[in-house]
């Protein structure tokens, strides 16, 4: 049952990721990106990471994608000049490099995993690892310093985007 679910979600996320790049209309690409992000959230749920699944939908598919759509609609782009029709040699090279990259990744995964000793995880243990309690505990004890640094990063991002987007300060 879980395997069927995994393959359906994997197919949805891969197809919509391809459509993001293949679309000429930027709004349609953004909507396909939302589909990819939501199917990834479902994959997190399948792994037992319930907290991250919820955060993925709220922060990624909600906040960040609203920002993207807002900017796309603000810019009023000309529709005809886009789409993946760069110089032909560049396209062929891009696909060749992507294929080489993919083959390398799959080969490394196959070689690396055969050397590791993996024990199967029980669903209860997976849910325990992905719960809000476990992640919160580790975020506010062991990883408190990175967490605080992140708040400074967000502050800098807010200030930076205001300074950039404002015509006169």
């Amino acid at each position: 049952m879980g395997t069927i679910f995994f393959f359906v979600l994997a197919a949805v996320s891969v197809i919509s990721a391809i459509l993001i790049v293949a679309q000429k209309n930027a709004v349609a690409s953004a909507l396909y990106l939302i589909v990819t992000l939501c199917s990834q959230a479902m994959l997190y749920l399948l792994l037992g990471a319930s907290f991250l699944a919820v955060i993925q939908i709220i922060v990624y598919a909600g906040a960040i994608m609203v920002l993207f759509l807002f900017v796309i609609m603000l810019l009023n782009l000309r529709r005809d000049e886009f789409g993946p029709d760069k110089k032909k040699i560049q396209r062929v090279l891009a696909f060749a490099l992507g294929a080489v990259w993919l083959i390398q990744v799959v080969a490394v995964i196959k070689l690396g995993l055969s050397k590791m000793s993996l024990s199967p995880v029980t669903p209860e243990a997976a849910l325990e690892t992905g719960s809000v309690q476990t992640i919160g505990k580790s975020l506010f004890t062991e990883y408190l310093y990175p967490f605080e640094i992140t708040s400074i990063l967000l502050l800098v991002a807010i200030l930076g985007s205001i300074v950039l987007a404002k015509k006169k300060i």
């Binding site: 886009f82 490099l97 294929a99």
Partner: peptide, 17 residues
């Protein structure tokens, strides 16, 4: 998914894409 992203960065001309 990562390779699709790499190819997308290489072939698209729209900065938002």
């Amino acid at each position: 998914l990562f390779s699709i992203g790499v190819v997308g960065v290489l072939i698209s001309r729209n900065a938002i894409v």
